[in-house]
Design a protein around this nucleic acid. Structure first.
Length: 263
DNA sequence: AACATCCGCAACCGCGAGGTG
DNA sequence: TCACCTCGCGGTTGCGGATGT
């Protein structure tokens, strides 16, 4: 069959969004959610295709999006996750609360690719200060199923964005995000504990993590309480300040530390 | 100051997956 | 089982600002 073009109807606007359009979209989604993206622009009175609305919302207007430059830690995380997952930006984004796949993709192409190239050109003994870790998941590359995450059991409490037609909160709450992140971590836990995978962490890593005195589990777990106002605080705080982040990354679901090889 | 080039980012395009009747 | 529809993802494009000449 022939797929109908996204914006088949003439007169649909393309290009940059105006503040007015943004406001219309935000207001509409706050009131009604986004059960059907295709129908949304018509119902909201926007001269845009549904796809454009969805993109604008998910990449820019969503209240839980963390704006601003990527921290060094975030960049390192992206690099390491990219080693593990390849160009699976949405999977990488799932581990970086407040960051979108598009944003991560952009930062990869504009910064990190270069940085990685530079790093690779340097002798192995030359390292930058600060924490670093490497995850060798070469085994994933040989798998028929290229997504180690989706091979894991379905998250019990996963809230599908498709099912959230009535509440913006379901889609955007940090709770939802952290739970999906935690679920995804399960994949890493199983893959990392495999004898084939290894994690390389410098000696300062755990001491830094374990001595984090500004740990506040509420940052990532404080769910939306039903109010329409988005939980911005969960996204503007540095995720690396949260013990939960590192804890989930390097522990099993039973709370046991993953086995890390001697370096 | 004017022009050229580079860079970053938002947005678009097309494909595949999954859901539904 | 199949056809169709919608959504999400990854790749790519193009605009606008920053920087260099």
């Amino acid at each position: 069959m022939v797929r109908a073009p996204c914006c088949e109807k003439m007169g649909l606007k393309k290009g940059p969004w105006t503040p007015q359009e943004d406001q219309i979209l935000i207001n509409y989604i706050q009131l009604y959610g986004h059960g059907n993206w295709r129908a949304l622009p018509k119902q909201a009175g926007l001269l845009r295709c549904g796809k454009s609305c969805r993109l604008r919302w998910t990449n820019y207007l969503r209240p839980d999006i963390k704006r601003g430059n990527f921290t060094r830690e975030e960049e390192d995380t992206i690099i390491n996750l990219h080693q593990m997952l390849g160009n699976r930006w949405s999977a990488i984004a799932a581990r970086l609360p407040g960051r979108t796949d598009n944003e991560i993709k952009n930062v990869w192409h504009t910064h990190l690719k270069k940085r990685l190239k530079q790093t690779q050109n340097q002798p192995t003994s030359s390292t930058e200060p600060g924490r670093q870790f490497m995850i060798d998941v070469s085994k994933f590359n040989n798998k028929k199923h290229d997504d180690p995450i989706e091979e894991q059991e379905e998250p019990v409490n996963h809230v599908s964005s498709e099912s959230s037609t009535s509440s913006v909160h379901e889609e955007c709450s940090s709770d939802d995000m952290s739970s999906s992140t935690a679920d995804n971590m399960k994949m890493e836990e199983s893959s990392m504990s495999s004898s084939e995978g290894f994690i390389e962490i410098d000696e300062n890593f755990w001491s830094e993590v374990l001595s984090a005195d500004n740990y506040n589990s509420d940052d990532l777990s404080s769910a939306a309480d039903g109010a329409i106002e988005p939980p911005v605080h969960a996204c503007t705080s540095n995720m690396y300040d949260s013990m939960d982040f590192w804890y989930n990354l390097f522990t099993t679901s039973a709370g046991e530390l993953l086995e890390l090889p001697e370096i």
